[in-house]
Design a protein around this nucleic acid. Sequence first.
DNA 1: TGGCAATTCAAACGGTTGTTTTAATTTTTT
DNA 2: AAAAAATTAAAACAACCGTTTGAATTGCCA
Lengths: 211, 211
Amino acid sequence: MTTLSTKERILNSTEKLIAENGFAELSIRKISQQAHTNLAAINYHFGNKQQLINQVLERRLNNLFQVREKMLHDLNQGDSQQTCNLEQILHAFIAPALYMINDRHQGGKVFMKVLARAYAEQSESLHELLATRYTPIIKEFAEAIHLACPHLPRQTIFWRFHFIIGALTYTMGDFGASSLSKQMPEAEYFNQSVEELIQFAVASLTKPSAQ
Amino acid sequence: MTTLSTKERILNSTEKLIAENGFAELSIRKISQQAHTNLAAINYHFGNKQQLINQVLERRLNNLFQVREKMLHDLNQGDSQQTCNLEQILHAFIAPALYMINDRHQGGKVFMKVLARAYAEQSESLHELLATRYTPIIKEFAEAIHLACPHLPRQTIFWRFHFIIGALTYTMGDFGASSLSKQMPEAEYFNQSVEELIQFAVASLTKPSAQ
DNA sequence: TGGCAATTCAAACGGTTGTTTTAATTTTTT
DNA sequence: AAAAAATTAAAACAACCGTTTGAATTGCCA
């Protein structure tokens, strides 16, 4: 166990508290207590509560989208035709998010609940973050899917990709609370959910659109 | 405009405030103000804040699941084989939720955001409500899907139905906040989302599992 | 080692929170 | 019309909220 800086301890504690009790019960007093620091340290390091929450989101989202983008680009690199397997594309989008959950050391498991909650709260800062910084990557993925699924109209792809993101977000927030997880070891449940979600996404994009 | 009872006005105001600002900013003072009543009226009619929130959830969920169940049973009635069209089954599950959103008079549009937020907050009362009262209906739907999709193992169906519920929940919470909606009239956007989501769900259950 | 900057700390600020109490008012019943 | 019950209202409760202030402490560079 390495010693963490005050700033890091505050970020980790905030993440944990949001995941456990939601935004409604979050207070900087509880945060400072959990982080074994003083109340004023939060305002000193982050300005105010909202900016602290923003940094909790940014810290991990930057990493997540970076990994996704790298995995997608590595696919294009290997395939000279610029068109790659649909399953690989969806893997590049879904797996980093779920692997993040399983990585206990980085605390990603905790963060994914934070992310799901921020979605639901329609946090302005999160919406802005996604709209400004991450839409380019989302569009890159949509474009790659379009190349892999020429049988589907562009608009249908946007819709279905939207729904896939929904299923992913919902599943991430559900981890640890699902009744299914009690029927098998957690690790097995996790691995299965990754595989099932990817297969689900592939299936949803494979069948030609009706009409 | 009929005159509503104090109790109804409190329920409606609570629903609206959660939908607009989330649970984090919800206070019974804002509720009583919006409902044009006194602060103490809330505790008088509902006991405390949490019980009020529970009733907000129950009021509409009871109706939603009732409609879903009726539509599913009507399908089984008409089809003597007990096996009915997959699209019809998914329509019976998805459409009532989205129609609820579009029904302004009943305020369902507002409620669906509340529901999406309660999901994300992992509200204990909501989880209990879903686990005790509504799992039977969920299982009925899963069983109907199983009959309509004999090519898929039972467990795969449970997974994919779970993901479909995720996509539905995510979409419901997204209404009014999506950037897509700005590109076309709201009514058209709504109708299209219903159709696209059903087609998405059908597609995800049509392709045989990859094994 | 002295001095300067960065950080931590305790204390207090004004406001808001959910809930309770007590009195006034309305509605219903006798 | 009188009495009883149900409902609304105003006021106060203690507890907690996010933020600020100013002094104490630490770490770092000269």
